[in-house]
Amino acid sequence: MSHLLLSMTVNGEAVQVAAPAHHTLLEVLRYKLDLIGTKQGCDKGDCGACTVQIDGVPQLSCLTLAVHAVGRAVTTVEGLGQQAGGCHPLQDAFDRWNAAQCGFCTPGILLSAEALLRRCAGREPTRLQVCEALAGNLCRCTGYTKIIDAVLDVGRQMAVAAAASAGEVAHAE
């Protein structure tokens, strides 16, 4: 089985990894790069546990060939905290809200949620927007309630921070 040498950026670092052409990004992340935070739940795109961001967009790593990540920037849950200097506000909010029970779906949900908040750009998302953005990620433990609470909590904080900094800008002007 011949291997390809694949170059991509993972969590901000340039990596080269050898893998056969029929391997998915999920396998390469988990078993070659030891980025075990990305989970495998259903084998084929039905659960969202394997969600990562590719060039900032949430995608299913179980349905992405590793070769398709070549030259692109992949962000996994390990990278989410790094971006924020250790712990992302979403991770902190999920912890405060007990939004992770078994935690197996959580990495994928965090990556979907982060993309939503980035798109909101300081506007507070509605409950429906949160549900729509996370509707590709199944959670079997929580009944979703605490997850929604946690995401809305961060959305509110970001909206407050955005309003405050807009106020400062206005003031400075």
């Binding site: 988990r30 078993y31 030891d34 980025l35 075990i36 935070g37 990305t38 989970k39 495998q40 996994t76 849950v77 390990e78 905290g81 712990c87 991770q91 999920f94 912890d95 405060r96 007990n98 992770a100 078994c102 935690g103 197996f104 959580t106 990495p107 965090l110």
Partner: peptide
């Protein structure tokens, strides 16, 4: 009270080793 779980953050940071994460 409301508590942070003793083992949630490691799961959310992607470092907890579930069974399939063992190598």
């Amino acid at each position: 009270k409301v508590h942070r779980k003793v083992d949630a953050m490691e799961r959310m940071r992607g470092v907890a080793r579930y069974t399939d994460d063992l190598k």
